[in-house]
Design a protein around this nucleic acid. Structure first.
Lengths: 237, 237
DNA sequence: AAGTGGTCTAGACCACAAC
DNA sequence: TTGTGGTCTAGACCACTTT
């Protein structure tokens, strides 16, 4: 209950009240909670107080607001906080850097022995290959080669691949990620990389490989290989 | 300037106005911006509008508020370059989260076969072991076990290990990092981990291993194993 | 048309930090 | 004591979604 005499701010009390109900399952996932006006009446507080409590819970990922419709309990993601480790888009967003991808190529390919070993496939001999260039303000910052396992490739057939593949994997599928392996090597850019990223010979880049495993599959669902500029400190928006 | 006839919300216009001034260097880093009341007068808007604009910029990491003192331009965070990939401290800083370490143990240890394999040592059979607990606002968020190769361990004999080991490696030595390998697995916390992190059984954690290689050495200079809470988004400030 | 969240105003009092 | 940000109220109108 809410105590107006308490030293604890009303919106904090209301926030805790709502959070407790969410965690206790009082409202189910995806279910609508009472409207802001209902909450005003129920708890006898002003709308600003209700909104402060709700906004805070939205920020913490417990609630989602839909304009004109209502406020809903957010489907719990098993991996909140995990995203920046998986998705370059997400990692950049935490720095307030917005990037966009341009798809250069997208095709099914057969894997040679060498590539098969690199992708850590055991049996599978084909995959969906996507080559992309990532831009921040029309400046190319990374070249990404993605390899999608046949088991998950169909999901991406009709997706907009200018968006983050990792984000799609996390948010638009029911797959849960079981392991992420990653190797990063700093080195100088090679000629072809320099041309794509429009950088000088001396510029250092990061070469990164990433294997993402889902659920019980033994082969990586998503292999990513990228090179990126290592001097993004000046790109804040 | 702010246009009350525009379709763009006033607080968004004000936010953009302030952001532009920050990026243009109109106020320097760590410098105080005008008070909320000054901004109300200057732009002829209500306090709620001013606060909405400022709160949004705080959230994005451009401003910091200090109760009773004022609002200040935030010091620029490190880039997404190499550092956040190596150092949890850096990675958290990009999320606007400041953390500190407490050293629980620090001792030389002899390695059994199992540990030797885990550390990926070929010949070496000893190392410097450091166990630390990482806090954000007195909340324990991670337990870290660090293993330092004998070749670099002496460097850390007299260092303050409440600071980031990776940061020391990057900034206070001449060693250059040649490779970083990392494995992340999301899973539920075990009993002993739950106690240290003061979390419930259902809470998901991230288990991470990281091998850092320097220069031409074939054995990792720094092996790190940690478990951390996977709900750090709720700790953002 | 009705209900929801989004924006905005004007005013009030409180808690904290610095002078 | 003064100035700052923190909390809270009561009211208004707008934009979006559903009925």
């Amino acid at each position: 209950m809410i105590d107006k005499m308490s030293d604890i701010p009303l919106y904090v009390q209301l926030k805790q009240e709502l959070k407790d109900k969410i965690l206790a399952g009082h409202w189910k996932e995806e279910e609508k909670i009472p409207s802001e006006f209902d909450l005003m009446k129920t708890y006898k507080v002003s709308r600003a107080t209700v909104r402060a409590a709700i906004d805070s819970l939205v920020l913490e990922g417990f609630l989602v607001k839909k304009h004109g419709t209502g406020t809903f309990v957010r489907k719990m993601r098993p991996s909140i906080g995990f995203e920046p480790l998986i998705s370059l888009s997400y990692a950049l967003e935490t720095l307030n850097i917005l990037s966009k991808n341009v798809v250069l190529q997208k095709k099914r390919i057969d894997l040679g022995e060498k590539l098969k070993r690199k992708l850590r496939y055991k049996e599978t001999t084909e995959c969906l290959y996507v080559s992309r260039l990532r831009y921040v303000d029309d400046i190319p910052i990374a070249v990404e080669d993605s390899y999608l396992h046949p088991q998950i490739a169909p999901i991406f057939d009709e997706k907009d691949l200018s968006k983050s593949i990792a984000k799609i994997l996390i948010n638009e599928t029911d797959l849960s990620i079981s392991k992420v392996e990653q190797v990063v090597v700093p080195r100088l850019a090679q000629d072809n990389e320099r041309r794509l990223l429009m950088i000088h010979r001396e510029t250092q880049i990061l070469y990164m490989q990433r294997w993402i495993y889902v659920q019980n599959q033994t082969e990586p669902a998503y292999y990513l290989e990228l090179i990126m500029r290592n001097d993004l400190s000046t790109l804040r928006r």
